[in-house]
């Protein structure tokens, strides 16, 4: 699997983060982050809680502001200019830990809202696209229900479909499975694996190490706001270099 994944990666740069720093008040959350993501790469970011991994990916689509350094997505430099932010957000899809579906809209409306109002897609076409992606995440029959009527796993798959409807070139996942019951994790991971196999550029914050081994072509370990170690999954899991990585892996893998 790792080999086939490797082959799909191109030399084109999707995200380039240079010397990025962020503070919450005086608290230094992200320290000198340097990261380049190539088109088609699938990166898993892990680390103890509070290590800044969620903040990192939230900076990429400007949900959080960074104070120093630069972020470049698909050649667009992220600045405080709304046009840039709009452009980056419409290229970057994101899935949240708590799904954040809009409870007052049906599944279908959740999926068509942004295409209609942001991409200006005609409603009919947007609905077709939405149905296409809902089929892809295997819940087309729930299209007219409301989020509250679905299980957690179904909701997260809808959230993925909702992002995909914007035809993003990059997907960010912020702990997509950690609010789910164990039996629902698999259905969400399967959806994500399928997405990976199609060559989507993905950044996942997750503790699903099985997923990382199977899908990622790079694993990044973060602690105290810094990238401590990164490597290909085999090397990362079998032969971690930094003592902090070793400690973390021993805790999370339970041996």
């Amino acid at each position: 699997m790792a080999e086939t994944a490797q082959m799909q990666v191109s030399d084109e740069v999707a995200i380039r983060i240079n010397n990025m720093n962020k503070w919450y008040g005086a608290f230094h959350v992200l320290r000198d982050i340097d990261l380049t993501v190539h088109r088609g790469e699938r990166i898993v970011i892990c680390g103890p809680s509070g290590s800044g991994k969620s903040t990192l990916i939230r900076c990429i689509n400007a949900l959080e502001e960074h104070q120093k350094g630069s972020i470049e997505v698909d050649g667009t430099l992220l600045s405080s200019d709304l046009k840039n932010i709009d452009k980056i957000r419409s290229e970057v899809g994101m899935c949240f830990q708590h799904f954040n579906l809009f409870p007052h809209l049906t599944i279908l409306e959740n999926c068509t809202l942004a295409p209609i109002w942001v991409r200006k897609t005609p409603k009919k076409e947007a609905e077709e696209t939405a149905m296409h992606f809902l089929e892809k995440v295997k819940i087309p029959d729930q299209a007219n229900k409301y989020p509250g009527q679905l299980s957690g796993g179904q909701q997260q798959r809808v959230a993925i479909a909702r992002s995909l409807c914007m035809r993003p070139r990059i997907m960010l996942f912020d702990e997509p499975t950690s609010a789910l019951d164990p039996e629902m994790i698999k259905e969400v991971l399967d959806t994500m694996i399928e997405l990976a196999e199609e060559g989507m550029t993905m950044l996942c914050v997750t503790h699903e190490m099985g997923f990382a081994r199977q899908v990622a072509n790079r694993v990044i370990f973060m602690d105290e706001g810094q990238i401590v170690e990164q490597n290909e999954p085999e090397a990362f899991f079998n032969n971690p270099q930094s003592p902090r990585t070793q400690l973390f892996l021993s805790q999370i893998l339970g041996h």
Binding site: D86, N100, R162, S163
Partner: peptide, 12 residues
């Protein structure tokens, strides 16, 4: 989260 999800979809 609702505001963030909408922002992440690119809504102004």
């Amino acid at each position: 989260g609702q505001t963030e999800a909408a922002a992440a979809l690119g809504l102004r």
